[in-house]
Design a protein around this nucleic acid. Structure first.
Lengths: 246, 246
DNA sequence: TTTTATTTGTCCGTATGTATA
DNA sequence: GTATACATACGGACAAATAAA
């Protein structure tokens, strides 16, 4: 625990006290005064340093928790959450390369699969007819054991009926597509929205229901434009930052 | 009010009744059976058509509301929300062009501004020293009167001290930069995260606190690489879909 | 302006199947 | 095998907001 320097806060006009304190703490985290996993000083201590009431500090900490910067543990303290992983979104983003080059240990695990009839939406994405058989893979991706996202992938069953078995052996979508003779592919389109985590998201991503998630829909095609794979990924918004390559 | 065709639902194995009904309603909206702004049949009527209890319909409607597809109004009915606006994210995205080409009426209104000292983060983005003066503009952007996002823009005060006055006259960031002699600029970097709407977001974007928002940080540079503008935009996630150009 | 009917929101309850400890 | 917890589904009653008469 590092000491905060004594810093009686001057109130800027129109800015609330708790927000000022939240900003100060955020900056201290950004500057590395408090590092990921470290414990912040206790609420009473922070309050004393800034010369404010403990409730004001609680308000500021609640704001930081809401934004995913810190996590309060009752009876223990308030801890700095790890910084968001920068996740490039481009034509050839491959999960294991991204996470690996950030110095963290990537893992992609198949947590479910099945064969089903394409919904109108999936059929449109894969250039099939509604009702055509497709294979669905559910893949949970973690970095250093912490879930970052899970992806639902659909492939035409026409050529990929046993995709689940292949993925389990090869542990990579790229390698699975290669098995089916698809040596190269690229993202044709990427659409990003956001929402709140439902119970399933919360369980799989190990976060509390209602927290923000980023939803990325993509369509992947071969070099000659044939769609071979469409994904819907759900990211824990607190843990990633999507970087658009341009 | 259009009639739903009588459709006693057959229960697929492992799929709950309320989710089946939510899917049916979602598809009806996607197919245009119910259009944006239209009122769905009442809960009791839907329940009768599907042959289920009203609570089961309520569960399904709550799911659609959570995903931003419909909005319930007590005493009045449940209404279809407008489809998400596709918002391209690229090197030269200009709000008015995007919204205008979607056939909707764009407006950007200055709702606040000021001159302040650059925080370490803002200084880094604009290649300044911490404490250097910067101009901050708060711009609310709407389509057909509905708020889509609000953007906090920072420009070096060195050349843009009166940016607020210029923006108010020219009503466009591009035109404002042109006034300062910057004829062209492009996005150097774009970072996307998500979070929950706080009270300020909710008020400015006219949505309920806690709903999902998309946060986009960007840095804009001249053709020779000098940073001239950095933005933090907060989008109502229910109302837009970011499309990555590739 | 007042009344009335409609519609969503919030309770109370019951029963059943399923997964977990 | 038993007990517990949880989600699902159904039934009813009333409150609160809205809209129309």
């Amino acid at each position: 625990m590092r000491p905060l320097r004594q810093e009686p806060i001057e109130l800027a006009p129109g800015v609330t006290l708790w927000r000022r304190i939240a900003d100060e703490l955020e900056q201290a985290i950004a500057l590395g005064t408090y590092k990921a996993g470290e414990r912040l000083p206790g609420e009473v201590e922070i309050a004393a340093r800034f010369g404010v009431n403990r409730h004001t500090v609680r308000h500021a900490l609640a704001e930081l928790a809401r934004r995913g910067l810190v996590r309060a543990a009752r009876g223990s303290g308030t801890y700095v959450e790890p910084a968001r992983l920068s996740y490039p979104i481009g034509a050839r983003t491959r999960f294991s390369e991204i996470v690996g080059s950030a110095g963290r240990d990537p893992e992609g695990r198949l947590i479910g699969h099945g064969q089903e009839a394409a919904t109108p939406d999936i059929a449109r994405r894969l250039d099939l007819k509604a009702g055509d058989p497709v294979v669905r893979l559910e893949i949970l991706r973690t970095a250093d054991g912490l879930p970052l996202c899970y992806t639902t992938s659909w492939l035409p069953a026409k050529f990929a009926a046993n995709a689940a078995r292949i993925f389990r052996a090869r542990r990579s979508i790229t390698a699975t597509l290669a098995y089916f003779g698809i040596k190269d592919y690229r993202r044709q389109s990427t659409r990003i929205t956001a929402g709140a985590a439902d119970a399933l998201d919360a369980e799989r991503l190990q976060l509390s229901p209602g927290r923000a998630i980023l939803i990325i829909d993509s369509i992947n095609v071969t070099p000659n434009g044939t769609p071979v794979l469409t994904n819907r990924s759900r990211f824990a918004a607190d843990r990633v930052e999507l970087v658009v390559e341009s």
